[in-house]
């Protein structure tokens, strides 16, 4: 019998193959559950493209083995909102047009959502510190900071 694991992703239970508990959560979310929010960027914990919320905390899914997830509730970019009903942070990114290629943006929104849950009125410098380990190659940083500031005002 192939092993399976029960996860909670975006509020729903999900049964996934778990033959290898060392498989990073990222591949389970992307390939077994077909999610596009968490992205592969480095697989090394260096860029933040793969971030998800685990019990509300921004976590790098590329270095999170499936076996370590346990009962944690996982929320991905899809779980935060949709084009029709974006979350406050997503909406702020749209309003500020804070995207170029957008490949890094998953991590930015996940990290910002975590930050705003702990700090309702972050300064620009708080935001920059919180995002210091999230890389963006397109140079969208200024818009991203403005988007997080805008989101903080709207929450």
């Amino acid at each position: 019998m192939p092993k399976t694991a029960q996860l909670t992703v975006n509020g729903k239970p999900a049964l996934v193959p778990a033959d290898d508990g060392q498989i990073p959560l990222l591949y389970v979310l992307r390939n077994d559950l077909g999610l596009h929010g968490p992205r592969f960027g480095c697989g090394l914990g260096q860029c933040g493209a793969c971030m998800v919320l685990m019990d509300g905390k921004a976590t790098r899914s590329c270095i999170t083995p499936l076996a370590s997830v346990g009962q944690a509730k996982i929320t991905t970019l899809e779980g935060l909102g949709s084009p029709e009903q974006p979350s406050a942070v997503q909406k702020a990114f749209i309003d500020e047009q804070a995207v170029q290629c957008g490949y890094c943006i998953n991590g930015m929104i996940i990290q910002a959502t975590d930050l705003l849950s702990r700090n309702h009125f972050p300064s620009a410098s708080d935001i920059k510190q919180a995002l210091a380990n999230n890389l963006c190659r397109c140079g969208t940083h200024l818009r991203i900071v403005r988007a997080v500031q805008r989101a903080s005002r709207s929450i």
Binding site: G37, R39, T76, L80, P83, Q97, G102, I105, N106
Partner: peptide, 19 residues
């Protein structure tokens, strides 16, 4: 004009080559 690709990109609905 706001970019059409941004709402799907910020919500995970966009399909990149990698997806």
């Amino acid at each position: 004009v706001p970019r059409a690709d941004i709402p799907p990109k910020v919500t995970g609905r966009f399909t990149y080559m990698q997806d």
